[in-house]
């Protein structure tokens, strides 16, 4: 087991390095000059060159990458002398257009994205698992048909449309959240009610889309496990149906669901661009969308992209280890 973990960990580190290198490389060969982008329309060439030097963009690419990685661990200082400014570790870079260390921008946005992802995850797991189990137990009867209909609608409804409809025809129409509060981050510890009101509609929107997929997955997973021999044994022993479902069927059926939930959750942690944009939530997704559309703020874009990729890669590792923990057969492979 230890050997498996070590091998898997090493693989993850390699992937992370490769991903960070390619993200860095892709963004630095773009036809845009971050130094020129750092100072508006009325810019003089000498300012651009000075900024290029201050941002450390006048050295070879591999050195830039090295500085970037070093910055992540020990922080980074830009410029020299009295004009110097520094970002403490982990430094993702400095955003000239926002006049802030990217790490601070990320720190501000992350709680929003995290709240969005966690709330949606809880909601869609409850919905998906319940509907899936009910559909499997009443296979080919009306609850199953209803669930199938829900799956079809849920998978066909693009989130930006369901989100827009929810926002316009429910939230704004019935004045459920005052426009002034919308899109403002409220900590759940300061004001739980405002926090809940801010997020609940975005949770529902996201959860609807995911719950449909999880209903389908749970249903087929439960049906498949129900035909296993050990379930028949449990039934032959005379165990009550509810106990079989809870202790035998669900436990086995959950493995693929946990895997998928982990990966979907990781995908959302990087920023739910669409939902955040529709509901005006200042999370990581909106941070990067704004960075792209307003002024192509490269350091922010590199940071958010890298962060999103890191979540996926790390969650892949966690899910794999978890799977090996649940299912001993995986360890041998």
């Amino acid at each position: 087991m230890l050997k498996y973990i070590a091998r898997r960990l090493a693989y993850t580190v390699v992937i992370l390095i490769l991903v960070s290198m390619s993200v860095y490389l892709i963004f630095s060969v773009l036809p845009m000059d971050p130094a020129a982008l750092s100072c508006g329309v009325h810019c003089k060439p000498y300012i651009i060159e000075a900024n290029r030097h201050r941002l450390g963009l006048d050295i070879p690419l591999w050195q830039q990458y090295w500085n970037f990685v070093r910055g992540l661990f020990v922080g980074r200082t830009y410029g020299e002398g009295s004009a110097a400014f520094s970002c403490p570790a982990p430094a993702f870079g400095y955003s000239f257009s926002r006049h802030a260390c990217v790490t601070d921008l990320v720190k501000e946005a992350f709680p929003v994205t995290l709240s969005l992802a966690v709330g949606a995850l809880v909601l869609w797991l409850i919905m998906g698992l319940t509907l899936g189990v009910v559909a499997a137990r009443f296979k080919h009867r009306w609850p199953d048909r209803l669930a199938t209909g829900f799956v079809l609608v849920g998978t066909s409804l693009p989130t930006f449309i369901s989100g827009l409809m929810m926002l316009l025809f429910v939230v704004i129409k019935f004045n459920l959240v005052s426009p002034l509060d919308m899109g403002r981050w409220v900590s759940p510890f300061d004001n739980p009610v405002a926090f809940f009101k801010n997020f609940v509609f975005a949770w529902i929107t996201l959860a609807l889309a995911y719950a449909a997929i999880y209903t389908r997955l749970t249903r087929s997973s439960v049906i498949e496990t129900s035909s296993e021999d050990y379930i028949r044994t449990a039934r032959a022993k005379g165990l009550p149906e509810k106990l079989i479902l809870r202790k035998h069927t669900l436990r086995a059926a959950l493995a693929p669901i946990v895997t998928m939930a982990g990966l979907d959750f990781a995908g959302l942690l990087g920023g739910a661009i669409i939902t955040e944009q529709v509901f005006n939530l200042p999370g990581l997704g909106r941070l990067s969308l704004r960075a792209v559309l307003q002024d192509y703020d490269l350091p922010t874009i590199v940071a958010t992209t890298l962060l999103a990729a890191t979540f996926v890669v790390v969650m892949n590792l966690i899910v794999d280890l978890l799977y090996a923990f649940i299912d001993p057969r995986v360890r041998v492979a």
Binding site: L30, M32, I273, Y296, A309, V312, V313
Partner: peptide, 20 residues
């Protein structure tokens, strides 16, 4: 490796420069 890239992020971030 390809699947570990956040696709939506990449499309959002790279479409503008790639179009150019």
């Amino acid at each position: 490796f390809l699947l570990s890239f956040p696709q939506t992020f990449f499309i959002v971030a790279l479409s503008l420069p790639l179009v150019q």
